[in-house]
Nucleic acid binder design. Structure first.
Length: 809
RNA sequence: GCGGAUAUGGCGGAAUUGGCAGACGCGCUAGACUUAGGAUCUAGUGGGAGACCGUGGGGGUUCAAGUCCCUUUAUCCGCACCA
């Protein structure tokens, strides 16, 4: 078959018939299947896109044939760092390169032959989209969910620019190799932590991969404990967060994070030099390294002490980088006897180690980090750890020195970026009025085109006078715009709400319509988004719900992660490794159906794996076989012979078995087994075809027709062509998906395995509803089995219906 | 480091969730048809001559373990300014 020709032919037909367009009249039967939209890269579609979109489109087509009104939109996450880096390198404007890339990708996406509803396309870099991203920002600001505070960025002193973590390689700038330092800037945050508890609880009801839910759970990182107030000798107070208040009597020092504001204030003159040097050193380290338990613990005594509120003991205050200012209170108590890190630290700096918990049935080695019985803690001795945690905090609560506290590892979402290619933050800074949100009627705050990208210490927008200078909406005086843009994750945190109402120019979406269209029924995308994008989207949904725009709690009811197609060498595909496999040559040589079908068959969808084209020819052969059968079927006249003999029964069994299994497998994204079942059905049809003499042609034709309908979602162009060959006029995707006739699957006799003492000893045919008595009868009637059992006593007979008989002698 | 996952023939991968390990396909072997075959069709294909042995290694639970438990090794993914 000329694949190129039929691709064009059927794509034109589908386009004309608007096969892919969602019909809002049928919203009651909607099935919203969403694939994560892609970043418009210069190099067309890669295999990863194909792997994500091809099989998922087959799933969507399957759902359509099952009677759903499917909605499968596509768009582009078009803002972001790469386009800007490319601009710095080549001088080509991000808008120009992005627009060009989008045109390119649209083209190849169309050639894939997927049922994307292009009438709902969105591009996040266009005004009619980012206008509403800005609207979202303002709504969050109004609701008190957006706020400003100081936060560190990676700063390259060489390029005089802010760097993404990705651009920092082993502590140095990827461009100029200068040592990257931390620098504090006032930045915008979204208060995602306000939803921490709900984001955690909500996971329970989601049809998501367990591992993803677990990852989010750990990312949110709930821990219950207490905040305990220590008082420095200076009188300054600070709190530490701990989950182990039961060890409070064992505190031999406290640690402040290097960024903690009290560090500067409390450091003694004598220690000043050492502390400052230490802080400077810390600024060069990233958090992953800082948290590493394998890394040597370091710290510096600041020359000041603090009082432990429970026993009035003065303990030294240290500054150490293993404490993060961003988590908890940025200060911890050091209990060397019952914490691994504290133990190492105390040993190194020769701090006292006092045991305050004893274990049950264990030796005396320290550190002892499990729960146990409290000791050396006057007033609390003999309590269990759990009792003491409550009692000790309760005791301190009386004097206002502590409170019970639940902490989350989750941090607020930093959304400002000191970059050009993103949605401008719709805020105006006025000397008189302070932070003033841009009035809704003035949206969008347009991103100017004519900017200077060269990194020179200021972000591109800050240098653009026409953009920056503006009148204050409140007082009318001179003011300036916020020079930062929004994290692209903000754009993607709500795009699923825009798709169903993509052309709405009055509002981001029509709430009434959106409440019918959402949640997304199936969301398909990479597992790398487990913690960030997927969490941000959940947060935004909940926030908009609380503002009254949405009436559902979760955006994505069901989630699937496709695996990753690696290079042939088993490594992740990358330009630098030179192991990138482009799909185009395969599409050219074999056709898009063959590539899609191969991707579906050759990999476990959620696992992926190294690319190899060894089996792709087999797919062509498989389709060729079907085409040959189709030619025969189409040209064979119906015969008068209409008996159902064992050959017909076998074929009907194979067909109905295939319906049942393929249906189930398609629904659960088990595409490789679905295709395997289709191959089995083709084998069964070929076998029937090869039978000489009289056979029931109408059964044959029906079964063949079923095959094509089952195949259609997986090889859409090819199946349409065969469908037409069989004399059908309408697109096969208007057909109803075949239904399994359970009666055809009933067999009078089934084969079961027989074991003697759990060892395989043979197979026998038994009736469907086997009783123990029958089983014995049949076994002893079998010569081989009977001789093995001769003279032995049967102790136990285990019958697993339809599977196995195990005779214990 | 923390968090998450994976490991099954020469290869990609199945296995109804504790019940015949290796479905389906690739590759390979033999044969048929052919002037020819990188086409098509048929048969075979985990190892071992065999008793038997086999799901990364070691231990355990069970009538029964790829599947459950303990332990160990290797590989991959994420870690908050890449998207």
């Amino acid at each position: 078959m000329d694949m190129k020709k039929i691709e064009k032919k059927w794509q034109a037909v589908w386009e004309k018939e608007k096969l892919a367009n969602f019909n809002p009249k049928n919203v009651g039967k909607k099935y919203y299947c969403l694939e994560m939209f892609s970043y418009p890269s210069a190099a067309k579609l890669h295999l990863g896109h194909w792997y994500n979109y091809g099989p998922t489109d087959s799933f969507v087509r399957y759902k359509k044939m099952k009677g759903f009104e499917v909605f499968q939109p596509m768009g582009f996450d078009a803002f972001g760092l790469p386009a800007e880096n490319y601009a710095i390198k080549t001088g080509i404007h991000p808008k120009d390169s992005t627009d060009k890339n989008i045109v390119n990708m649209e083209q190849t996406l169309r050639e894939m032959g997927a049922m994307f509803d292009w009438s709902a396309e969105i591009k996040t870099c266009e005004e009619d989209y980012y206008k509403w991203t800005q609207w979202l920002f303002l709504k969050l600001y109004e609701k008190g969910l957006a706020y400003r505070k100081e936060a560190p960025v990676n700063w390259c002193p060489g390029c005089k620019t802010v760097l993404a973590n990705e651009q920092v390689i082993n502590g140095v700038c990827e461009r100029c190799s200068s040592t990257v330092v931390k620098k504090d800037l006032t930045q915008w945050f979204f208060k995602i932590t306000e939803y921490a508890e709900e984001l955690l609880q909500g996971l329970n009801g989601l049809d998501w991969p367990e591992k993803t839910k677990l990852m989010q759970k750990n990312w949110i990182g709930k821990s219950t404990g207490g905040e305990i107030e220590f008082t420095a000798e200076s009188g300054d107070k600070f709190k530490v967060f701990t989950t182990r208040a039961d060890t409070l009597f064992g505190v031999s020092y406290v640690v402040l994070a290097p960024e903690h504001p009290l560090v500067k204030k409390l450091t003694s003159a004598k220690q000043k030099k050492a502390v400052e040097a230490y802080i400077e050193e810390t600024a060069k380290t990233n958090e992953i390294d800082r948290l590493s338990t394998a890394r040597e613990k370091t710290g510096v005594y600041i020359g000041h002490k603090a009082i432990n509120p429970i026993n009035g003991k003065a303990v030294p205050i240290y500054v150490a980088d293993y404490v993060l200012y961003s988590y908890g209170t940025g200060a911890v108590m050091g209990v060397p006897s019952h914490d691994d890190r504290d133990f190492v630290f105390a040993t190194k700096y020769d701090l006292p180690i006092t045991r305050v918990i004893k274990g049950v049935n264990c030796d005396d080695t320290l550190p002892f980090t499990d729960d146990g019985i409290v000791m050396n803690s006057p007033g609390f001795d003999g309590m269990t750890s759990e009792e003491a945690r409550k009692a000790i905090i309760n005791e301190l609560v009386k004097t206002g020195k502590a409170e019970h506290k639940t902490n989350f590892r989750l941090r607020d979402w930093l959304v400002s970026r000191q970059r050009y290619w993103g949605a401008p933050i719709p805020v105006i800074h006025c000397d008189k009025c302070g932070v003033v949100p841009v009035p809704y009627s003035d949206l969008p705050v347009k991103l100017p085109y004519d900017v200077e990208f060269a990194p020179d210490g200021e972000s591109p927008l800050a240098k653009h006078q026409g953009f920056m200078n503006v009148k204050c909406p409140i007082c009318g005086g001179d003011a300036h715009r916020d020079p930062d843009t929004l994290d692209t994750f903000v754009c993607s945190s709500w795009y699923y709400l825009r798709y169903p109402d993509a052309k709405n120019s009055k509002e981001p979406f029509n709430p009434e319509h959106i409440n019918k269209m959402l949640p997304v029924d199936k969301y398909v995308g990479g597992a790398e988004h487990a913690c960030m994008h997927l969490l941000y989207a959940r947060f935004i949904t909940k926030a908009l719900r609380d503002m009254g725009y949405l009436n559902f709690d979760e955006p994505f009811k069901s989630l699937v992660h496709q695996g990753i197609i690696l290079g042939p060498d088993g490594m992740r595909m990358s330009k630098s490794k030179g192991n990138i496999i482009a799909p185009d040559p395969y599409v050219q040589e074999y056709g898009s159906d063959v590539l899609r079908l191969y991707l579906m068959f050759g990999f476990s969808y959620t696992e992926g794996g190294p690319w190899s084209d060894a089996g792709i020819k087999a797919i062509t052969k498989f389709l060729d076989r079907i085409e040959r059968l189709a030619t025969k079927v189409a040209s064979t006249p119906n015969s008068k012979y209409n008996a159902i003999t064992s050959a017909e029964k076998d074929l009907l069994y194979a067909t109905n078995y295939a319906i049942k299994q393929v249906d189930k497998d398609m629904d659960s994204f088990s595409f490789n087994t679905a295709v395997a079942r289709l191959m089995e059905l083709v084998n069964a049809l070929s076998k029937f075809d090869a039978i000489e003499g009289e056979k029931n042609i109408s059964v044959y034709k029906d079964c063949f027709k079923t095959l094509i309908m089952l195949l259609a979602p997986c090889a859409p162009h090819f199946s349409e062509e065969i469908w037409e060959m069989l004399g059908n006029r309408n697109s096969i995707f208007y057909s109803k998906y075949p239904e399994c006739d359970e009666n055809a699957l009933v067999k009078d006799e089934i084969e079961v395995a027989v074991q003697i003492n759990s060892k395989m000893r043979g197979k026998i045919m038994v009736p469907n509803d086997l009783t123990e008595e029958q089983a014995k009868e049949i076994i002893f009637a079998n010569q081989k089995l009977a001789s093995e059992l001769e003279g032995k006593q049967i102790k136990k007979l285990i019958i697993v219906p339809k599977r196995i008989i195990n005779i214990i002698i």
